[in-house]
Amino acid sequence: MYDIEINDVSVNYGPICALQNINLKVKSKEFLGIIGPNGGGKTTLIKALLGLLKPTIGSISIKGNHTIGYVPQFTFFDRNFPINVLDVILMGRLPKKISLFHRYSAKDKKRAEEIMDKLGILEFKNRQIGQLSGGQLQKVLIGRALITDPKILILDEPTASLDTKTKKEIYEILKMLNEDKTILIVSHDIEELFSYIDSVTYINKKLHYHKNDSSLNHEDIKKSCGYSVKLFREKEIQNDRIII
């Protein structure tokens, strides 16, 4: 069955059309890569999935109202903000309904520590986020999404400006999480991503390519796009109307 069904969704910002007639179905436990040029509507699609914005037309349904774990781009954060790792992760445990004098329970803290241990960041528990490396902060944000017990995980450029070794670490973590979670990942690191994902979708206002095939590889993309993945990004920037 499908975890996410996007039916004929269009999103307009005033007169500007950001997404047009998107149809996309994501299977349970699928690992989907979302690629496309900057300004092509990837972030808009994510925001629509998270309920941060309403589609102008069309509908999005999430199976059984699963919670979605959201991992935003770590580069957007103010690293000087006075908050430590544990408090960032516990954020995921805040009750929806505002409760006066709320305190995190011992159970919440234990769960946070388990997750930190699993991600290998337990030793940084009390560190302020400015004293972490990019990769460590990314893991903290993944941890914060995980503590909400999501069935679906959405990540926005989780490996942007990370070195190759750290990128690989993050992908390995995601592969492990993929065992029982559906994962959607927006990325520019197409090549490195390919050995991990099940399917890929190319978004530039419209949905251009989507394949649910476990045998997906470079060659497939090459065949259907007409050029190698390496050139993918450069090409799409030069000519944003590739017909695939």
Binding site: L52, I83, V88, L94, K96, I98, F101, H102
Partner: peptide
């Protein structure tokens, strides 16, 4: 400020995430 301090910290640090987990940030 003190009665909903955990919410303030979350709202100040990452408004978007706070909204995603279902808290009404407009309030």
């Amino acid at each position: 400020i003190m009665s909903i301090f955990n919410y303030w910290r979350a709202y100040l640090f990452d408004e978007e995430f706070t909204k995603v987990i279902g808290v009404n940030v407009l309030v």
